[in-house]
Amino acid sequence: MAAEGLRVLFCGINPGLMSAATGHHFARPGNRFWPVLHRSGFTPRQLRPDEEQELLAHGLGITNVVARASARADELSPEEYAEGGRLLAEKVARLRPRWLAVVGVTAYRAAFADRTAKVGPQERTIGGARVWVLPNPSGLNAHWTAASMAEEFARLREAAAGADGHGGAVSATTPSS
């Protein structure tokens, strides 16, 4: 499903095997995306992966850099990331979200050839959208706690609310890990 004019389009790396099996983004039980999204104030309650369509009511969307499912993101090739970045830029230009939030600095660096990118707002725009790189909510990313991730997500929420004070969502391709 696609929608235009979103406040934030979240972009995972690629579907994990559980997400591919269920057809829902961030479906693996240990993934912290849904709890962090709620804890940061983007949603009034913690959504389940099978409730992802409710993001639309909050001006939020969800997609991936790479459509191919894998057990781990490190199974993706540099070519897949580059092609995924190109296709994502086209999608963003078409959907026109205000912010593109790439969930995972390594994926952002690989997809957009930006080796120096760090978590936080980026100088560049993609498809006309401002860009914010968020920490990867995978349970494998122990460097970031749920609390510190929620703080970073909340920084994005505050920046995205600047223009009109409210939000909305889309499920725009296959699910994220």
Rank of each mutant, 00 (worst) to 15 (best):
W132P: 04
R94K: 14
A117E: 07
G165L: 07
R96L: 06
G104C: 12
N141P: 08
G128D: 11
V105N: 15
A89I: 05
G168D: 07
V92Y: 07
S138D: 12
Y108D: 01
R130G: 08
V105D: 08
T174E: 14
P137Q: 07
T116F: 09
G167E: 13
W144D: 10
R109S: 04
A146Y: 02
A146N: 09
L87S: 12
A142S: 13
T174L: 12
S171P: 06
A161G: 15
G120R: 13
S148R: 12
H166V: 10
L156Y: 07
G128C: 04
A160Y: 05
A161Y: 00
L95H: 09
V103D: 07
P135D: 01
G162W: 00
N141D: 11
A89K: 12
A161L: 13
R86I: 01
A129R: 11
V133A: 03
E123L: 10
D164F: 07
P137A: 05
A111F: 11
Y108N: 03
S138K: 08
A107M: 09
A159Q: 04
A101S: 03
V170F: 11
V131Y: 06
G128N: 09
A150G: 11
R157E: 06
A160S: 11
G128P: 08
L134P: 15
W132V: 03
L140F: 10
E151I: 01
A163S: 12
R94V: 02
L100E: 04
V105W: 00
E158P: 06
E152L: 02
G162P: 02
P175G: 15
A111H: 10
L140R: 13
I126F: 07
A150M: 06
A150S: 14
A111L: 10
K118A: 13
G165F: 01
L134Y: 03
V102P: 13
V131R: 03
A89M: 05
V92I: 13
I126L: 15
